[in-house]
Amino acid sequence: MKRALLLLCLLLPVASWAETVQLAGSTTCLKIVRAAVEEYAHLHAGTTFALSGGGSSAGIARVLEGRTHLGMSSCEPTREERQRLLAAHVRILPIARDAVVPVVSRAVFEGGVRHIRRAELADIYAGRLRNWRALGGPDRAILVVGKNAYHGTQRVFMRYLGLDRVPERWLIELDDDRDLLRLLRASDQAIGYVGIGYLDDSVRALALQLEEGVVAPTPDNIRAGRYPLARTLYLLVAPGAPHEARAFADFLRAPAGQAIVRKTGFVPLAQ
């Protein structure tokens, strides 16, 4: 009896050494993950989480290096990345569908700019288009805001625009979507882009003008694939991840987790 008790006592601290689940990567995914962690903590009080951003690239890199349990990516891994991930036995788990949406300050939208063509976007971000007047908006210079290169959102957006690199001079690069939004909110002349999960009332999304017509970034359009700037959000599970991390990943992909996805403004995987 005494021995069992002793063993139990030894186990208790061990139990409390349960691993903190480490997540790093896409800030877009972070919005879902933050909400999911809060929900998850209610159900599994013992599990602790350490969240950090850094962008999708950072997420992929860290997972490959084994410096994080769960990597977050908001863009499709490149072929090279995919190979390396698979080689490292990293599981690539889609957790949500997302779209990157060009957003403008409200004043701009109210000023008349409702939709935009890809070419126009490219001109703006290349620095060729400098005033809203050219797009039928107010007579103000365009304050161009974007995310830095580590972010999946940026890669997706840039890929769409067909731009490799953007000169810094007229682009404000921010790391945090919230800062980006804050800027757009504070400004009456800014443009940026975010995952639809970050859209709120303080900014206005621009619909894309395609050949077929104007395609708004609605969940239907996104799921149907009509909206071109769609993407899948991934969770990358490191091979040596503790079972709490795996459990969390499963939770995210389960209906409860997908409900959180929807709640946070993203598009759940399946309907």
Binding site: A141, L143, I172, L174, D176, R178, D179, L183, A186, S187
Partner: peptide, 19 residues
């Protein structure tokens, strides 16, 4: 002034201020 704004915005918003 626009340039100044641009520069200030970059610094200010990167520090998580709102304006």
């Amino acid at each position: 002034r626009f340039d100044a704004r641009h520069d200030l915005a970059r610094a200010v918003f990167a520090d998580h201020f709102a304006g």
